[in-house]
């Protein structure tokens, strides 16, 4: 699995895919399912409490991943449904679309999951998620006061993220 090259942030972030601000929310999970970060920009409908919402989201991603790993029509040896898989192993997915939103998903080799929920007509956001991952590495992982596995409380990261997502399609 090839990953993002050098550690410095690429000088020009990937171009926005459409006009206008249409991001709804962003989640960052670690590999244990702890929600490290939740940001929301536009979410009129809330049905669950925050904790329940994170759990449901992580559960959805986890199960969808085991579904895609089992359904993969190009590989012969897939193992059983729900067999534990390391990040990068087995067929994963990068986005799904409903009539009201589009969810883009990225998992790093260390199991950090970044989820961005946007307007359904947003284009491919894989490059943007990689850029957000790079922001995470720069502003959170390299922050000496941050201990891994804890929720992210880093203002600089939040402002940079807000800025980037607002400029995004």
């Amino acid at each position: 699995m090839q990953f993002f090259g050098g550690s410095e942030i690429s000088p020009s972030p990937p171009a926005p895919t459409a006009a206008g601000n249409n991001a709804h929310m962003l989640y960052v999970f670690n590999r244990n399912g702890v929600c490290l970060l939740y940001r929301e920009w536009n979410r009129p409908l809330k049905t669950l409490s925050a904790q329940q919402d994170y759990k449901l989201m992580f559960g959805l991603l986890f199960s969808l991943k085991s579904l895609t790993a089992k359904m993969d029509p190009t590989s012969v040896e897939k193992g059983n449904l729900g067999v534990p898989q390391l990040p990068g192993q087995g067929c994963s997915f990068h986005s799904f679309r409903t009539n009201t939103y589009k969810l883009s998903f990225m998992e790093s080799p260390s199991g950090i999951k970044i989820i961005l929920v946007t307007h359904p007509r947003t284009g491919d956001l894989r490059e943007s998620l990689k850029y957000i991952y790079n922001l995470y590495v720069e502003y959170v992982v390299k922050n000496p006061l941050y201990s891994p596995g804890n929720p992210i409380k880093c203002d600089l990261f939040n402002t940079t993220l807000d800025q980037y997502v607002r400029g995004l399609g």
Binding site: G59, M71, C91, T100
Partner: peptide
């Protein structure tokens, strides 16, 4: 999964996943 995706919608009247894009299908 289809049912859960409706619950997680940020805006009302979501009718579930229409397209799932995986790595190989």
């Amino acid at each position: 999964m289809h049912a859960i995706s409706q619950q997680l919608s940020p805006v009302p009247s979501c009718s579930g996943i229409e397209l799932l894009q995986a790595d190989t299908f």
